[in-house]
Design a protein around this nucleic acid. Structure first.
Lengths: 232, 232
DNA sequence: CTAATATTTCGATCTGGATCGAATTGTGCG
DNA sequence: CGCACAATTCGATCCAGATCGAAATATTAG
């Protein structure tokens, strides 16, 4: 009866507890098999398969066969974005599934959002890039400046490679806890991958939490300093 | 079976077509009666009432009795935010309920997001405030600079009044069409209200679309100039 | 090829919740 | 007070879809 995008369709997909659990599990960015996801969601393999079929058709997840396993992952950052915002709202509603624990604080500090860094550290990264004129807005899109491109290269990011692929390099993703944008896009993913490779940070098993090593945090803070009050 | 916020609960609320229509209708920012919403959703009064009860309990809408009518509105900007992002994703999925028409182009240009300006004009406003150093980031939050406070006063916004109320003055809302943040918060609301009062823009009946008058647009462009490539 | 494991399909069941119309309650108007 | 209209409650119906177990199918390992 109405105009506008069909939000009911996709909200209904997320609205089932089993599917929501599946999607939440995939927010870690790791691709998981159908049986693993069945376990996460607490349902039988057959029901999980049915749910995955639906999510697939709905464009929320994608599959990748690999050997005898079939791996599932979120279809893209758009999906992660939607889930982030939903989580942010649900959390704000005070309807946390489990009471707020120490794990939660860690998630606010640093976590992975599908494949890029989120949480306070993610925001720090985003702000720092702006503050140092490494990133800027042109029209409606984010771009790295010349200086910014040089900068990320010093961090070991193959920038030319990123540009070659058709995926957007810089993109905004809204933060779960702080309600502030942070850096997504292929650059966001590449940077986080570098942090992992350089041993600055690592993922906590079976969680979205990201743990910085003490030395890694120092290096991170040097690479992405914060100058309060000088956004731009 | 999992950690993290209960997104299924709220997604399920949005996931019903009738409720989604109700929420979409409320995105116009206007408060509507139960019967009006029933009409929007295309269901009987009794079912609408039931849905509204659910939405109320779920914290997505709030009610305000006024005379013999009971007006419903979105519970807050958080809700509008969630709906915006969902719409953005659904639209990107190519699952528009109706094919993209002229109306749609107008929505991209300027529309109301709950109570503040969104679309290209909303982004222009947001960017311009940054470019002219009227708004800045301190830590995780947005603030108006001294100059910015003076500026909005020249537009007729009672800034002190905004600060007095406990609601956040500046807040980010992610844009539906352009995937870029724009200004929400009580300032976003106040500014849009001023645009209406000054006759710069008016809402198109029964739509979220915002139409600028030709003179109003000129004034708007003067007040919020765009300097491409100089974000900050 | 055969065995083992992963995944999907099928058939059957069961239930939450969406829906409506009629009756009831609530509120303001005259 | 009583009428008119708004809104909710109630009772009844009905169905999409969530679920499972078992059987069928795929895929790799040996």
């Amino acid at each position: 009866m109405k105009h506008g995008p069909d939000i009911a369709r996709i909200a209904a997909l997320i609205g089932d507890p089993a599917r929501a659990n599946i999607l939440s599990a995939l927010m870690s960015g790791k691709a998981l098999t159908a049986s693993e996801l069945a376990g996460e969601a607490g349902v039988s393999a057959s029901t999980a398969s049915s749910h995955l079929g639906r999510l697939l058709e709905g464009g929320l997840v994608k599959e990748a066969r690999q050997g005898r396993h079939k791996y599932f992952a979120l279809a893209g950052e758009d999906v992660a974005q939607v889930l982030e915002v939903l989580m942010g709202f649900a959390a704000g509603q005070g309807h946390l599934r489990t009471r707020t624990g120490p794990k939660d604080a860690q998630l606010r500090e640093a976590r992975v959002c599908y494949n890029h860094l989120a949480g306070s550290r993610g925001i720090q990264l985003y702000d720092s890039l702006f503050a140092r004129d490494f990133m800027e807005l042109r029209g409606d899109d984010l771009f790295l400046t010349e200086a910014g491109q040089g900068f990320v290269r010093t961090l070991g990011v193959d920038f030319d490679q990123l540009v070659k692929s058709r995926a957007p390099v810089c993109r905004t993703c809204l933060d779960w806890s702080a309600r502030r944008p942070h850096l997504a896009g292929s650059l966001g993913r590449a940077l986080f991958k570098r942090f992992e490779m350089m041993g600055w940070a690592y993922r906590v098993r079976d969680t979205r939490a990201v743990q910085f090593s003490s030395d890694g945090l120092r290096q991170f803070n040097m690479a992405f300093p914060v100058n309060p009050g000088s956004h731009g």
